[in-house]
Each structure stands twice: as C-alpha cells, then as structure tokens.
Design a protein around this nucleic acid. Sequence first.
DNA 1: TAGATTGTTAATCGATTAACAATC
DNA 2: TAGATTGTTAATCGATTAACAATC
Lengths: 218, 218
Amino acid sequence: MVVLPKKALRPRTVGRLSIYRRVLNQLLENGSVHIFSRDLATLAGVSASQVRQDLMNVPACGTPQHGYSAIELLLSVNRCLGTTTRASTVLLGAGHLGQAILAHFQATQPDLEMKAVFEVDPALVGQRLHNITILPLTDLEYQLRLIKAKVAILAVPSNVAQILAEQLVNAGICSILNFTPIRLQLPQHVYVEDNDIQTSLERVAYYATAPMNQGVNA
Amino acid sequence: MVVLPKKALRPRTVGRLSIYRRVLNQLLENGSVHIFSRDLATLAGVSASQVRQDLMNVPACGTPQHGYSAIELLLSVNRCLGTTTRASTVLLGAGHLGQAILAHFQATQPDLEMKAVFEVDPALVGQRLHNITILPLTDLEYQLRLIKAKVAILAVPSNVAQILAEQLVNAGICSILNFTPIRLQLPQHVYVEDNDIQTSLERVAYYATAPMNQGVNA
DNA sequence: TAGATTGTTAATCGATTAACAATC
DNA sequence: TAGATTGTTAATCGATTAACAATC
C-alpha cells in the first residue's frame, strides 16, 4: 500500500465511497468487526475488484485473514471524503422537493451545514422550516456572501434555473446540486451534479416496455 | 442512414434522448424550425459528436444545409422512446419526496400513468393526493396485480426498501425507480434506477472542498 | 459550385474487471 | 504450512470524441 500525494477523486469513486461508508456504519451497528472486500461488494452492489480498486484511494489496509477492520476502514473513508469542515450550504426552492431535501439533511447529517432557504413564493417567505427561516430571493447574492455559502441546492422552477445559477456563481458558490431539468451553462470550475427526476422517470418508463434482454442494468 | 433491427438503447442514451426531447419542445415553442447538431448539443450540455452518435439510434435525417427539422426530429425521438403506451405505475411512500414526485407527474406527463399511491402511515392512508387515493401497504401484491402495474417508484424508509422491492417483483413489476439509499438485490431482469439524494449531497460536499483542478465535471 | 454539416467509422479515453504475486 | 485474500498491474469493456467521405 503506497500513499500517493492527495489527488481529487472521480465523481463515481466518491459516490461508491459514500455507499461503503453507509454499509460500514450499518455493519458496525450490527456488531461486525471485520469485513472482506467480497462481502462489502455484495452489500454495496458492486464487484469485489471495484471495492479494492476504490480502496486504493482511501487508502485501506486489510489482511488476507480478516479482510478489513470495519471501524478502521470507516475512519479511513471518512478522512478521505473529508468530514472535517462542514461546507456552508443554501437551498433554493421550498416546495415539496425542497422540503424533502431538508428532511434528508435532518436524517443523514451530511458534510454540509444548511444555512438558509430561499423562495419566491411570498406566502412561504418568513415561515420557518426545520428551524430555518425562509428568505426572499430578492437579495440573494448579498445573503450568500454574508454566510460565505459554498454549496447550493437548486430546487426551483425550470424557467429561473439558469439565471439563479449565475447569481450563485457570482456570489462564490462552487458546487451545485441541480434538481431542475435544465442543463446549466456555467464556468468549468463549478462542480454541477444533475439529479434530474424527470429523466429518471422517462428512463424507467423506457425499460418497462423496451427490449431489456442483454443485462443492460444500471 | 441505415435502419437497423430495433435494439434496446443504453441507459445513458435514453437519458440524453429525453433531454433532446425537452430541448426540442422548447425550441418549437420559441418558433424554431430547424436545428444543427452543434446547437442542440450546446443546449443539451453535450458534444456535437455525441448528439449525432445518439441520433443514429433514432434514426434522424438531417441535411447539411438546415440540419434537422425540429418537429420531425421530435416525432422521431418520441417514436424511439415509445410514447405509445403509458406504463401502469405505482408510488410507494407519500412523504415529502413522494409528493414532490407526484407533482412532477402533474407537470411533465411522462410515459407513465400513476395508478396508485401506497403508504404505511395510517394518518395518510385514505386521503387523496393529486386525485389519487392513498392505499395501505397491507395488500400491496394483490393491488399491484389488479392494476397490472409495471413500474414502481420507491420513496420509503431504508429499512423496508428491500422487502418491499421483493414484493414488487413478485407482483410483476419490471422497472423500479429507487429513491432509497439501499442497493436493492433483485433478479437481473428487473431494471433498477438509483436516484440517491444522500449520495448526491455527499458528492457536492466533496467537490466544495476537494482539489477540483482537472475539469472533473460530471 | 464552394462550403459547411451530416452519418458513420476509427481512435481515444476512462472505467470496470481479471489476474496474480505478495502476504498473513 | 496451506489457502484464501489483499494490493496492484494488466486486460477488457464501454462510452465519448475525432475524423472524414458523402451530401445538399
């Protein structure tokens, strides 16, 4: 096991490490002490090769006899994904989807800290949601700078997605989780993750009827 | 342009065709008649090569002078993705996320027809949501067979995800949109699309702080 | 016609899987 | 020790990009 100079992980690797982390937490709750790559693979829905390949980035340290120490591996993955500082986060859009996302925050406590919720609908502005006051979108950029927001979650109507995204970037946001079906046109340095429910729906519709013979599974 | 015997499209291709479809609809609303692969590419956030590669599956028929006819291309994509029959769909879980998904249905009318909503919480059972009565999870399999459900959307707590998924498959479901963070263990013939908000959150968190130098964009 | 674009094939790139020496 | 597993490199697979003849 060789420790390389730290390098950015690929998005898919980060996704799988995040899954391994959850599996490990679950295992520890159930009293497991050690785990083999094969078993971790099964629980995470990937191949054993993939697990070992991913763990090269962590880095992990297993033995042929017991595999990996569950607790050590978990700590190592945490260190790799960087739980040290919780990035300052804002949510745009307090509709059903926005509220569902806030509920996720409550339950899972990711490496993010929700600092503010913004909303156009005047009926919602001023209300409190999970202990966070809903702010108007009018002085968005000022507020973002004030709280030094780094991450934004975009759960607003399509027609305002691009213009709001540009304001976000202007105000220093560097990572966006985009729930709108619009493909945002932004500078390269901004990380954008699209979570497009509309496309997801159309894909399950397609495979409900289409010839799905040759194990085309996701 | 050669018409090949129809073959299942790959998930990513389906996703992009779904995006092209939306872009084309928008263009037609704005009065565009023709479109070049390069412009479609820009609007969809992909390369022109990618667009032409995808359109080989449709198939499309463009000219060097005007590119593609927007309306013909749209119809062709629709035919390819198969809008003919709307697959019978059910939603499991009527929490915030479930309600947000139902709202998407209202707005976008995908190639799915929502037939029933199931929920454990007795307080919600019996209520109506977007004109659909919320049913209890007790006689799930019977109800699914009754309405010949083909697609299921899973928006339930993690701890019941696997057991419910198995019931779904038993009752003839062949395509699942999985919003839980659990990786479902199901037979190969079932298409499962994971839309894991928790992982999405952890990924944007990672790229908010991590070295994100070499255009690692999604 | 001249020139830009299409449809398609070839090349590249990245991600996953297989293989295997080292190891406990 | 014998045997199964790790860490790592090589091979494969699939997806994206580049190239270019055909074309309008």
